[in-house]
Design a protein around this nucleic acid. Structure first.
Length: 492
RNA sequence: GGUCCGUUCGUCUAUCGGUUAGGACACCAGGUUUUCAACCUGGGAAGAGGGGUUCAACUCCCCUACGGACUGCCA
């Protein structure tokens, strides 16, 4: 994928760097990004966007997009949740490279690194019990002191170590500051004396997230960590692990979270949270990708685009710093454009998948065939798949066509007799739009009525409803025989 | 409480010191029409507040307010 657009600013600054320091023109490391959800439920819509950004960036830069499941918390991780996440990503069309990595399976490696840090003197054994720490924190809070816990074992003589369970804590620097050069947030500075010695290895020998992410990201060769800005504070402590091990720190990009329509953090009461919920609501995946990518990222005034275009445009510096709200109206609008632009067979395929996941009965072969033939007059008007199916009712249904209340009402004595007079004209008609238009125009004129008067009972007869696509489109799609039969049914 | 991040129309956003602050969704009005949509035209609608810096600030700096994240042997 050629780089179509690049921040002008960045190009200028790179040029400047080259002029002042010609040396660092080392070959750029290929981009490696990853999405690392924890398997505690479904794929959250915010997680879906994080995955999307990682995917766009990797794919747009000829890089690699990896997937890792952060399942070190055994109590909260379930195989079902992992499966749900994979399903969500697959539906969104975000394909990852290589095998899915299980963080838990790397636990021995994590423990090795923890011991390595111990040997290097950048970590130490802490024998404090959780109860001790909890009571310390409770007391500190009550007295309004800092709850920052400094282990008494930090500089203890190993000879004094008791024979009790211990955790391995990072021996974090107590002075100076840690600077995060974030591609989205800019330069963020943390005072080291405000950061505690995080636990790297639990007393049961399992690694904590803080250690595991760093080790895995390093081992997997991740060059760009694009994740929610709820991790921004963590980045400082994680940097210390990189430094302790002498590893290259990745490029950080902490993106703002997505909020609900009311501006509050997205939660259950907002309804649809999982990516799969959006699939069951019948939004096309291409539209979801388009809409989600515009939440917090922009490329000038471009609103409607394909993922291929987004890949060519996507740069970290174009990501905003403020949280964005979910707007279903705009989502629908974008999705409508994607349905309209969709290829008929692909749309049919997606509609079928939608019916299955939303627990509805799939279309029969005959219905699929009908939908395919009707697609041309349907797809411009539907924003979602349920809407598309609703508008396709005339071709999905079969005789005898069920009439709804309004349709029954419009088929009164007068209009039924009009329909009876109409059928002979249709029997001999050439079945083209032009010929049909000529017939109906003449027929309406002969009866001294406008075409609208004629169209209403026709909609009722053909679709059983009075809100339908164009009557000409319906007749052309269902064909001459079926049209005449339906009109005769209604006129009887 | 502490640390960190954020704040342009109702919403998503453009703007990288000089613009009548632009676009899109939504909304309102009109047009088109074969119902509903779609479509076309037009309209209202924004720099949180206060201080600086500057010839000039939405843009840079500080303070306040509001919102958020983190502050775990969760991830």
């Amino acid at each position: 994928m050629p780089r179509q657009a690049q921040s002008r600013c960045k190009m200028v600054s790179e040029r400047l760097i080259c002029m002042t320091a010609p040396a660092p023109t080392l070959p750029k490391k290929p981009v490696v990004t990853r999405f690392a959800p924890s398997p505690t439920g479904y794929l959250h819509i915010g997680g879906g966007r994080t995955a999307l950004f990682n995917w766009l960036y990797a794919r747009g830069h000829g890089g690699t997009f990896l997937l890792r499941i952060e399942d070190t918390d055994r109590a909260r991780s379930t195989p079902d949740a992992t499966a749900a996440i994979l399903r969500g990503l697959t539906w969104l069309g975000l394909d990852w490279d290589g095998d899915v990595v299980s963080q838990f399976q790397q636990k021995d490696r994590h423990a090795d690194v923890a011991r390595d840090m111990l040997a290097r003197g950048s970590a130490y054994k802490c024998f404090c019990t959780q109860e001790e720490i909890e009571s310390f924190r409770a007391a500190a809070e009550a007295e309004k002191r800092s709850t920052l816990f400094i282990s008494p074992w930090r500089d203890a003589d190993p000879a004094t170590h008791p024979d009790t369970p211990f955790v391995i804590r990072m021996k974090a620097p107590r002075t100076g500051q840690t600077v995060i050069a974030d591609a989205v947030q800019g330069t963020v500075t943390f005072q080291n004396d405000l950061l505690d010695d995080m636990v790297c290895l639990r007393s049961d020998g399992t690694p904590t997230y803080m250690l595991a992410v760093v080790v895995d990201d390093h081992d997997m060769g991740v060059t760009h960590v694009i994740r929610g800005d709820d991790h921004l504070n963590n980045a400082a402590r994680q940097t210390m692990v990189y430094n302790a091990m002498g590893w290259d720190v990745p490029v950080w990009a902490h993106i703002p979270l997505i909020h609900g329509p009311d501006g509050k953090k997205l939660s259950k009461r907002h309804g649809a949270l999982g990516v799969e919920d959006y699939q069951s609501m019948g939004y096309p995946a291409a539209g979801m990708r388009n809409y989600l990518s515009r939440l917090g990222w922009s490329h000038g005034d471009d609103e409607f685009f394909t993922s291929a275009q987004a890949m060519g445009w996507f740069e970290l510096e174009d990501i905003g710093r403020a949280p964005a709200r979910l707007d279903f109206k705009k989502l629908e609008h974008i999705c409508g454009l994607h349905i309209a632009a969709g290829e008929n067979a692909a749309l049919l395929h997606e509609v079928q998948a939608y019916l299955v996941v939303s627990g509805q009965t799939a279309l029969t072969d005959a219905q699929s065939d009908g939908l395919l033939r009707a697609m041309y007059c349907l797809k411009d008007r539907a924003k979602t798949f349920p809407e598309l199916i609703d508008k396709a009712h005339f071709v999905l249904t079969s005789r005898p066509v069920q009439l709804d209340e309004a349709a029954t009402k419009s088929l009164d004595m007068v209009s039924r007799s009009m329909l009876r007079e109409l059928t002979p004209h249709l029997q001999t008609a050439l079945w083209t739009r032009e010929a049909l238009e000529a017939i109906f125009t003449a027929f309406a004129a002969a009866h001294g009525v406008g075409f609208g008067i004629l169209a209403a009972p026709l909609r009722a007869a053909l679709a059983g409803r009075i809100v339908t696509p164009s009557v000409y489109d319906m007749m052309l799609v269902i064909g001459q025989t079926e049209t005449i039969s339906r009109i005769e049914d209604a006129a009887a």
